[in-house]
């Protein structure tokens, strides 16, 4: 930050105030309130709320379905962001080769960004409908081959496919921009040294792409969680048998459908902590491998 130019005391604060106010009201205050409720037992209609210490946490952490939901959430975060970043990386590497298709691809790969996660859900749940969708003919030959309504694995497969589809644009843009910023001379120098394309990918492109990869992974992890709600609500509703009841969805149904404000707030606190830990771990372990120098 070297660009400080104007000297004024009050003005910058006035300039920041609107955003800080909005952030305080709709970002920090909800966090504070979640912590408050997590330590209270709150009557839905506000009749009374009593301080209960860690009782809510003991209850939540002691329940099996919370843990299975938390495990599923963590696995989903890792696998969903991994699969979508991986796909986008492969596509970006291919598009970076300045082929005839690259131009069209660069435009079309952004299109999924226009489709809301819930819309994707509505669309894919129809396309993958075991009796009315694409798999219907196969299901007639082998009954039960594909049924995401009863088979948890199929349900997850459906979620992942929809998630990859929707997550391509953002990662693709960032990664392609990163690849294109790698100077041609480096490639040439590598080629002169006798490094083949695979070798150059490993030794030049990927290392120089680490800043973008890092950003994309960090943001995809958060995005896969927030996008999961729209997908789950329109595709599986947490089923079959609670298999896809990820924490984001569980908190919603506990709080909004079952009036369990304290339980939902407690799980909110735990989920936020989980995301914070995952993000922190990424900074600790991934950022070290990031090379910012070019």
């Amino acid at each position: 930050m070297k660009q400080e130019i104007f000297r004024a005391r009050a003005l910058p604060w006035w300039l920041c105030a609107p955003q800080l106010l909005v952030l305080f009201l709709f970002f920090y205050l909800p966090i504070i309130l979640a912590f408050f409720w997590a330590f209270h037992l709150e009557q839905p209609f506000g009749g009374g709320s009593q301080f209960v210490g860690f009782a809510n946490f003991r209850r939540v952490l002691g329940s099996g379905e919370f843990w299975s939901s938390a495990r599923a959430t963590l696995a989903y975060m890792v696998l969903a962001s991994g699969s979508s970043v991986g796909t986008a990386l492969v596509l970006a590497l291919a598009a970076d080769r300045r082929l005839r298709l690259s131009g069209i691809a660069r435009n079309i790969f952004l299109w999924p960004k226009a489709v809301a996660s819930a819309s994707i859900g509505v669309i894919f749940v129809f396309l993958l409908n075991p009796y009315l969708g694409i798999p219907a003919p196969l299901n007639e030959i082998w009954p039960g081959l594909w049924n995401p309504r009863t088979n948890p694995l199929h349900a997850y497969a459906m979620l992942f496919v929809a998630n990859v589809w929707s997550a391509i644009p953002f990662s693709f843009i960032i990664l392609l921009a990163g690849l294109q910023a790698i100077p041609e001379e480096l490639h040439k120098a590598g080629a002169i040294d006798g490094a083949g394309p695979w070798r150059r990918l490993r030794d030049i492109q990927l290392p120089l792409l680490t800043p973008q990869l890092f950003v994309v992974v960090v943001l995809e992890v958060a995005d896969s969680l927030s996008g999961s709600f729209g997908l789950i609500d329109t595709m599986t509703r947490g089923g079959p048998g609670g298999a896809t009841n990820l924490l984001v969805y569980k908190i919603y149904s506990d709080g909004f459908k079952a009036y369990d404000l304290s339980g939902a707030a407690t799980q909110t606190v735990i989920l936020m902590a989980l995301v914070a830990v995952v993000t922190g771990a990424q900074y600790l372990f991934l950022e070290r491998r990031v090379r910012y120098d070019r």
């Binding site: 379905e65 459908k257 079952a258």
Partner: peptide, 19 residues
């Protein structure tokens, strides 16, 4: 109490048994 939530639990557990 919290019967709405219980209905979901019942559905979830029996669905696991059915499948």
């Amino acid at each position: 109490g919290f019967y709405v939530q219980f209905r979901d639990i019942f559905m979830e557990e029996t669905q696991k048994a059915f499948t």
